[in-house]
Design a protein around this nucleic acid. Structure first.
Length: 577
RNA sequence: CGGGGCGUAGCGUAGUGGCUAGCGCGCCUGCUUUGGGAGCAGGAGACCGGGAGUUCGAAUCUCCCCGCCCCGACCA
């Protein structure tokens, strides 16, 4: 039983000045965590219990699925990360350090190498597969910008699993098993989430899905089709190409368009010249970018911005991507800023990518590559030809669903889980092979699966808090029942302690507010802030032989006889789980 | 890394060159109070982020550094 008279806890009346998002404010105010440095947090007793509850649920679901827990050090030697070149490739996000002899070490940002090497060290036959192992570990990543409290930290707890199979079919099965285990895990955590198509990112690999918990403070944007259920991270949305018939479009024609370096100014002058009807969507925006110091040109409809994340996802191997700055334009004096068109891109030697919305046969108004001149009836396939098509334009609410063309919904979310098929990349690099039935050496194929454990605590807080504080799901809360004793006599305190003891005897965890000094109001506020799902008040109604039972989330209150308290709590708890 | 904001007691803050740095919460002592963040009285707690400078005098002005937050870039 947690007793507040001695619990190492101090709640705060004011929001911390350095917190912005609700989970961060409330976890600090309610005394769960404290900030130590940017993206680095300490956990106080209530926080530790909550974090352990989340870990326990995850562990139980992993074990139930037949996955086995292992544990690696966080402090790792450089060598393991050399074979996969990640000592270099991970870049500044890797925490590096040296031992007293000058040997290089790192704090593990992720453990693919270690898992692969561990299996390599133990197993060498196809008969040993399939295998899925996992760990719950503290990870370290020197993020350029930690943010949102414990949603994105530099040190965080993660559950990471890896599956090992001989065949692609086996990988599919392992992947599906993990997907199912994640569904039961997140359901038990009472998280609302969507499973969306994702891009594999720097990890490589093919199939990949993310578990996204919808939340206004989330960092990921995803689309959802209300009709067919299509769901994808915007980075993974594939736009349909619908070629147009350009046979009746008049020949390309240059126009005088003085002082129209922006889409808006261009649209205004077009409407003036041709009596209205033009919008940004009729124009073609020719965005210049530097991709690893190589100039590229990207064509998108004028009413859309280039989404750099989506673009980069499609540019394999490109590490650094930014739109042209003044000194980039200086290197290409033939480009007339504000009046660039794709018509003679071939001459300049710049690779032209087109968003699928700029489909073959579509006709556009675009720059004429001369100051104060644009051109209309510029047709893709006739007047210019892109070198390649690539997803580049931003995705918007109402865009057509790639599967069924219904208008999609856009939402923000926190990424709480990511599952993907790694394939043979790591096994190849690290030489993880087994002998097959024919005694032939085969490279193992792997899957990789992660849940942000500390992040899940924040995500649950984000999805369940209200005006007065946190409000945890039953299994996650630091205790199931919060008993508040009020008054100045001993009786309510003794009664509260007795009820607490009986509840604990019945297997129901209890936090008892047995502090004598604070007024009843202070204790009520604290109980609401801390967010334990069931609150019992032992005080005034004791005169009638009753205690008061409250549902933290719904706010419902009822009076219950003291000797019926345990049964009433058990019933309320049953209704909550 | 680019842009913006900020750094004064455990927390939230006031203080734009001039007395011993002020207030609220929290903390300690005493009395009263005790069902919605109590009242009175008395206390403890601050090298004003750090360094250098300007000045008779610096929390306050200048320069450099450090740290924190937000937007973006970045981020299995």
């Amino acid at each position: 039983m947690l007793r507040m008279s001695t619990l190492f806890l101090r709640t705060l009346r004011d929001d911390p000045a350095d917190a912005e998002v609700p989970s961060h404010k409330l976890l600090v105010r309610a005394g769960y965590v404290r900030r130590i440095a940017a993206g680095i947090y300490s956990w106080l007793p209530l926080g530790v219990i909550t974090l352990r509850n989340v870990e326990r649920i995850i562990r139980e679901e992993m074990d139930k699925a037949g996955f086995q827990e292992v544990h690696f050090p966080a402090l790792l030697p450089r060598e393991a990360y050399e074979a996969t070149k990640r000592w270099e490739e991970y870049g500044p996000s890797l925490f590096r350090l040296q031992d007293r002899k000058g040997g290089d070490y790192l704090l593990g940002p992720t453990h693919e190498e270690m898992f692969t090497l561990m299996v390599k060290g133990e197993y060498s036959s196809y008969k040993d597969l399939p295998l899925t192992i996992y760990q719950i570990q503290t990870k370290f990543r020197d993020e350029a910008r930690p943010r949102s409290g414990i949603i994105r930290g530099r040190e965080f707890v993660m559950k990471d699993s890896y599956s090992f199979d001989l065949t692609d079919e086996g990988l599919d099965i392992s992947y599906q098993k993990h997907r199912d285990a994640y569904i039961s895990t997140f359901d038990r955590l009472h998280l609302k989430y969507n499973i969306v198509k994702a891009v594999s990112g720097a990890m490589g690999g093919s199939k990949s899905e993310e578990f996204l918990a919808p939340c206004p403070t989330g960092e990921d944007t995803y689309v959802l089709c209300p009709k067919c259920g299509f769901a994808a991270n915007v980075e993974a949305v594939v736009t349909k190409v619908t070629p147009a018939d350009a046979s009746k479009v008049p020949a390309m024609e240059e126009l005088d368009t003085p002082n129209t370096p922006t889409i808006d100014s261009l649209v205004a002058i077009l409407n003036e010249k041709f009596g209205g009807g033009f919008t940004g969507a009729a124009t073609l925006k020719n965005v210049m970018l530097m991709a690893d110091n190589k100039a590229i040109s990207v064509l998108v409809p004028g009413d859309r911005e280039v989404d750099l994340k989506r673009l980069q996802a499609g540019l394999a191997g490109v590490e650094e991507l930014h739109t042209f700055e003044e000194d980039d334009f200086a290197k290409f004096p033939t480009l007339v800023k504000g009046y660039i068109g794709p018509q003679d891109a071939a001459k300049s030697g710049i690779t032209v990518y087109a968003d699928p919305r700029v489909a073959p046969g579509t006709s556009w108004v675009t720059g004429a590559n001369k100051l104060n001149r644009h051109a209309r009836y510029v047709v893709n396939g006739r007047d210019f030809t892109p070198d390649a098509y690539i997803e580049a334009a931003e995705i918007r609410e109402g865009d057509a669903c790639p599967d069924c063309a219904t208008a999609v919904v856009i939402d923000r979310a926190i990424e709480i889980g990511h599952i993907f098929q790694l394939g043979r990349k790591y096994a190849d690099a690290l030489g993880l092979t087994v002998l097959d039935q024919n005694g032939k050496s085969q490279v193992v194929t792997m899957g990789s699966y992660g849940i942000g454990v500390s992040r899940a605590v924040a995500a649950i807080a984000e999805q369940s808090y209200d005006q007065i504080g946190l409000s945890w799901p039953l299994e996650v809360a630091p205790a199931k029942v919060h008993i508040v004793a009020t008054g100045k006599e001993d009786l309510p305190f003794d009664t509260a302690a007795e009820i607490g003891a009986k509840l604990e005897a019945a297997g129901i965890s209890v936090m008892l507010d047995d502090r004598r000094d604070p007024s009843a109001g202070v204790k009520f506020k604290d109980a609401e802030l801390i967010g334990i799902p069931v609150i019992i008040v032992v005080g005034k109604s004791l005169a009638d032989g009753n205690i008061e039972l409250r549902n933290r989330k719904s706010g419902e209150k009822s009076e219950v006889a003291v000797d019926k308290a345990v049964a009433a709590v058990a019933a309320l708890i049953a209704s909550l789980s």
